[in-house]
């Protein structure tokens, strides 16, 4: 039982990261029906930016621990800066790569998204080199044990931050004016603009928020694993996209559910079947669910087309 709970914790921690990235996919898809393949790379870029910001603050990967409020302050500063920068990059990507193609055939923005993904990977590859790079794990990492199950601060951090972000996002979408504008634009772009909603600004905000969440995911993934690599976004992006589809693309609660589910399925497969079968099991479940429930677990939320 203890081992099951332990794997559940592992799964939730990994799933939280998938969920955070999946939110970006699902928000963008919900509003412009574009699978933003560059999103996974924005996530990795988030990790890279965190490393750069930490270096500016004088924190290197030497294993130094900054305890107390100083550590918390640095973490907060880094995560906020990385989220803002990633958000801005997301907006720039939308402005220069996708906006003009919004009414083009769907294949065009899709190919463009793949192009942007390569572009970001190329930039990161030339920036830090094509190998694993260390992420400074500067926060102390006490372990809390109860009943044979142990959870350390990093895992706790991953879970708390991802849940906090999702709750905030849910609140934002349903209780603010901008959130309302997003939902309106997702439902019917033309009608929304007739109602006086600036659709371009709304879409830009969607990209900003999605990318900022990816930046946060980049920080917690770096803290959790202690390393990152320029190609990580590809795998993580693929899994997160799967999570979004699993939960019902365009559906924010669905993305979270899908993310946690995939993380947990991965951990359980590694425990009870074999580590090398995790991808097979994850994607088999995806196929099954799409066959039985084509609109995902919680249903798609897409603009209605006449």
């Amino acid at each position: 039982m203890a081992i099951f709970l332990q794997q559940l914790i592992n799964g939730i921690a990994q799933g939280g990261m998938y969920a955070l990235i999946a939110l970006g996919y699902t928000m963008v898809y919900g509003i412009v029906e574009l699978i933003n393949f560059a999103h996974g790379d924005v996530f990795t870029l988030g990790s890279f930016l965190c490393i750069a910001i930490l270096a500016l603050l004088g924190v290197s990967a030497s294993g130094q621990i900054i305890a107390g409020w100083q550590g918390a302050l640095i973490a907060l500063l880094v995560v906020v800066l990385a989220a803002l920068l990633c958000g801005v990059i997301g907006v720039l990507i939308e402005r220069f790569a996708y906006r003009r193609l919004r009414n083009a055939p769907r294949l065009a923005p899709l190919i463009t998204a793949i192009g942007v993904s390569f572009l970001l990977q190329g930039v990161m590859r030339n920036w830090k080199g094509p190998s694993e790079i260390s992420f400074p794990q500067f926060l102390p990492n006490p372990t809390f044990a109860f009943g044979g199950v142990h959870i350390d601060l990093r895992e706790l951090l991953v879970v708390i931050v991802s849940i906090l972000m999702m709750v905030a996002l849910q609140f934002f979408i349903y209780n603010t004016k901008l959130g309302k504008a997003m939902r309106a634009s997702a439902q019917d772009r033309d009608a929304a603009s007739l109602m006086g909603i600036n659709v371009n600004t709304t879409i830009a905000w969607t990209f900003f928020i999605g990318s900022a969440l990816a930046g946060v995911a980049g920080f917690i993934s770096g803290m959790y694993f202690g390393t990152t690599m320029f190609t990580n976004g590809y795998q993580a992006g693929l899994k997160a996209f799967t999570a979004a589809v699993l939960g019902g693309i365009g559906n924010i609660a669905g993305a979270m559910l899908g993310g946690f589910l995939i993380g947990i399925v991965e951990a359980m497969t590694a425990q009870y079947i074999s580590d090398q079968w995790t991808n097979v099991v994850v994607f088999s479940i995806l196929v099954l669910i799409l066959v039985l429930r084509p609109s995902g677990l919680l249903g798609e939320q897409l603009p209605e087309k006449v």
Binding site: Q14, F225, N232, Q271, D275, T278
Partner: peptide
């Protein structure tokens, strides 16, 4: 005896199984 996959980043689940 377990095998890992190319590009894998997260080994927590595998290591928990090993630790057990």
């Amino acid at each position: 005896h377990d095998h890992i996959t190319k590009g894998q980043q997260d080994f927590h689940a595998l290591l928990t199984r090993i630790a057990n």
